[in-house]
Design a protein around this nucleic acid. Structure first.
Lengths: 213, 213
DNA sequence: CGCCCTTTTGAAGAAAATCAAGGGCAGTGG
DNA sequence: CCACTGCCCTTGATTTTCTTCAAAAGGGCG
């Protein structure tokens, strides 16, 4: 991570609902989410949105295929965000670190791929899928010390959670209620409390290995 | 691609249903599917399988995160396959080509990622999803000259197609029948015939940009 | 206060799973 | 040659899951 610190970052604030990437972004530009939450998404023909990845503070994005900058795909701020970024030409300057830097990006890309495959293969039962998503967010937050007393920030709406699961906000609400009724997780006021993380893991067969933490 | 040709390949035959990767595979080993079809998959807790990627002749795989070699995830031969592979230590030998080689692998990884996001965001309507899959396979086959008279090989069962779409084989059969009834595509005897590819594209809003062809 | 956003709940309908059965076809072996 | 078996595809009937439509309640904020 020292590799990254040496780069000439510039920080931008992005309002909720706005795109995160520069309009004239190069496919090699690098972004790090400092505060707030963001998401990879695609817009379907019928106007609905599918979230294909969630970004929490500290997460890296960028380095997309240029083909992804087609209409309908991008990265959006789910809350107000602060984004640090480096233009690709400035990255080349840090050639001393280039080897470690590329290795780091490669590892991150492999974790991203593994996560995408896990998201695709999560049970199509919405209850288990929601439990699995909460397990993942818990594991990621825990890895950076953001879980206290089984409680972590979840500053996104149920509609956005539904977009990440591929279900409607109505059904998301029902599954959140069921999770609460089962005593597995309580989603409220921008937080989620998990009384017994082992029980939640068991409910959806969650194993965190794919996150590479 | 000349970069790849210079590597010391060894070719193995893998029987249908067997795993493609070496048992003692390193995460940096490289594989190329010479003949036959294979698939990335995950096994769910309930025993069902989700195919997260289809591999056709000429496709590259390998370079997975080590975390992906957990139970339940892998690459399986859907038909009898011939797989060419290079051990990672032999790749290092070809250091003359290392720069171009790494760049090529990076590009392939970006296409893989884009494809995963598209698969995730495809309409959850099974009819459109099936049409979209056939469009993708057509585009990939066409790019290497494997489409003749709107006809291309599809040597996999409807159950396997269903696993790739996340639906049952029964429902797959119904959607294949509907596609046939609509005159959009005819799946038969290991082939699929597409009378009017533009019409099929229109039926599922397919755009091939993400494939990076 | 009034408005917007979010969550919740109910009722009805659509999509897909499940359960079940039958048919075609290739390979196998009597 | 033909019965037998296994695999794949198809079709029907029923059930489950999720969507859609609708309404209402709560909270934050101008």
């Amino acid at each position: 991570m020292q590799v990254l610190r040496s780069l000439p970052w510039t920080v931008n604030t992005v309002q909720k609902g706005r795109g995160v990437l520069h309009a004239d972004a190069s496919s090699a530009d690098l972004y790090v989410l400092e505060t707030g939450w963001a998401a990879h998404y695609s817009i379907r023909r019928d106007g609905t949105r599918r979230i294909t990845g969630l970004l929490m503070p500290g997460d890296v994005c960028g380095e997309r295929a240029s083909s992804e900058r087609r209409a309908g795909h991008g990265i959006v701020a789910l809350t107000c965000c602060e984004i640090a970024s480096v233009r690709s030409d400035r990255i080349e300057d840090a050639s001393d670190y280039l080897r470690g830097f590329r290795h780091l990006l490669w590892q991150l890309k492999l974790v991203e791929e593994a996560t995408l495959r896990v998201w695709m293969s999560v049970s199509r039962d919405a209850f288990e899928a929601l439990a699995h998503l909460i397990c993942e967010l818990h594991a990621r937050a825990d890895a950076v010390g953001d879980v206290r007393d089984g409680r972590l920030r979840l500053p996104i709406t149920q509609e956005q959670i539904g977009d990440a699961l591929g279900i409607t906000s109505v059904h998301t609400s029902r599954m959140v209620g069921k999770l609460r009724a089962c005593g597995l997780a309580d989603v409220f006021e921008g937080y989620v409390r998990i009384p017994n993380i082992a029980a939640l893991h068991a409910a959806c067969a969650f194993t965190p290995a794919y996150l590479g933490l």
